[in-house]
């Protein structure tokens, strides 16, 4: 068991993507990447589309979580960490051809960033 963890939830409008304990969560806020460790000061930030990384404990084992996420919000409280995003996709949920199409047709900056994040996530695997 690692030194310290914080209960962590990742929520989209349609489901709870992850619920468990995290040692470290790194999300892309509008001000840049922000890493949250347990015992962080109360914190609320807007997130922009990007890649969310987290070291989590699943079934007592350390696991690395990597997801492409849409716009959202991150709330750190002394006893828990909650992230709300429009979408959160695992690397194998991403349809590369469709994402490329979306990227070609997208005009909205957030949609372009999200498509780019998805492609970066696929590329890193």
């Amino acid at each position: 068991m690692a030194a310290s963890t914080i209960p962590f939830k990742l929520i989209t409008p349609t489901k709870v993507v992850f619920e468990g304990d995290a040692e470290l969560v790194i999300a892309v806020t509008t001000e840049g990447e922000e890493g949250i460790l347990p015992h962080h000061a109360p914190f609320l930030a807007a997130l922009k589309p990007g890649i969310l990384r987290a070291n989590v404990l699943a079934d007592g084992k350390n696991e690395r979580l990597e997801l492409a996420t849409g716009e959202g919000f991150m709330q750190a409280l002394p006893d828990r960490l909650t992230i709300l995003v429009d979408e959160a996709l695992h690397f194998d949920d991403i349809d590369v051809a469709k994402t490329r199409d979306d990227l070609a047709n997208a005009t909205d900056p957030a949609a372009i960033e999200f498509a780019n994040a998805k492609l970066r996530l696929v590329g890193s695997h």
């Binding site: 409008p13 806020t29 509008t30 001000e31 922000e34 000061a41 109360p42 914190f43 609320l44 930030a45 807007a46 716009e71 919000f73 409280l77 002394p78």
Partner: peptide
């Protein structure tokens, strides 16, 4: 309330986060 007023840190500012949150609230 989880934190007393004023002790929560907002990035970049509460006004900015709120301006992002209100449209999401409508959408949701």
């Amino acid at each position: 309330s989880h934190a007393p007023k004023g002790s929560v840190e907002f990035a970049p500012s509460p006004e900015f986060v709120l301006s992002r949150l209100l449209p999401k609230y409508l959408e949701f």
